[in-house]
Computed example of a mutant assay.
Amino acid sequence: MQFSLWLALAGAGALISFTPGAGAINTMSNSLNAGFRRSIWGILGQQAALVVHVVIVALGVGVLVASSPVAFNVIRYAGAAYLIYLGVRQFLSKPSLEEEQAAALRNESAWSIFRRGFWVNLLNPKAIVFFLAFTPQFIRPEQPLLTQYAVLTATIVAIDILVMWFFFAAAARSFQRFTQTPRGQLVLSKVFGVLFVAVGILLALIH
């Protein structure tokens, strides 16, 4: 991949990552609940789903999903339902400052955080459709495809990790003071719950 083309790819990847969405909301929520450092597990889960999306597109399966209303809608509604479930659960959660319960929240297993991030990104068929439109701009058919897809994937993943961790997860740290009081915890739970539900509804309604 030519350096100029790679720079364009990096710029586009940065713009995509800075666009708020379910992944950004999940990252901020993890940063608040599990801590800044441990939020990386959710980010890595999201990247694993991103890699799956690129592989699906590279194999041509993405074309089938994009052209099949039934397949697309099944995945779309499943993803919307999962985000709404996360939002409702967060919205209804009760504030707690007791040490044991706070420790349990912060000690959520890395696998659990990773798995949630994975499903948040994977159950988004619009990501497949997006990559169908996005990847051809940076792939040259006359050149080795495997190398090009590897460079594209590595670039997008690296940029997204940096943006998610050092922007969205770091930004959530400014809200840490709210977690010190029951009222603050309640407000944050409501806010992030509503955001998850809103993104889920948009995913279900916007075509």
Rank of each mutant, 00 (worst) to 15 (best):
G35L: 06
W6E: 10
L105R: 08
L123D: 05
A133M: 14
T155Q: 10
T19K: 07
A14C: 13
N30D: 14
V157G: 13
W41T: 08
Q101L: 15
V191D: 09
A58N: 06
G60R: 14
N30S: 15
V120M: 06
F167G: 08
P20F: 10
H53W: 12
G200T: 00
A10Y: 12
Y85W: 00
A58D: 05
V199E: 02
V194A: 07
I139C: 08
T153I: 13
L122P: 04
G60Q: 14
G42R: 12
R37F: 13
A158E: 10
L146A: 10
N124D: 11
F114W: 15
L50D: 01
A58S: 07
I56H: 14
F18Y: 04
I84M: 03
A22L: 12
F131K: 05
I40M: 08
G42N: 13
A172Y: 13
S96E: 05
F130E: 12
I25D: 00
V88W: 03
T179A: 02
L202T: 07
A78T: 13
A34K: 15
Y77C: 07
E142R: 00
L202F: 05
Q137G: 07
L146Q: 10
W165I: 04
V55T: 06
A66P: 08
Q2H: 04
L59C: 04
G11F: 08
V191C: 12
S29R: 02
Q46L: 02
E99I: 05
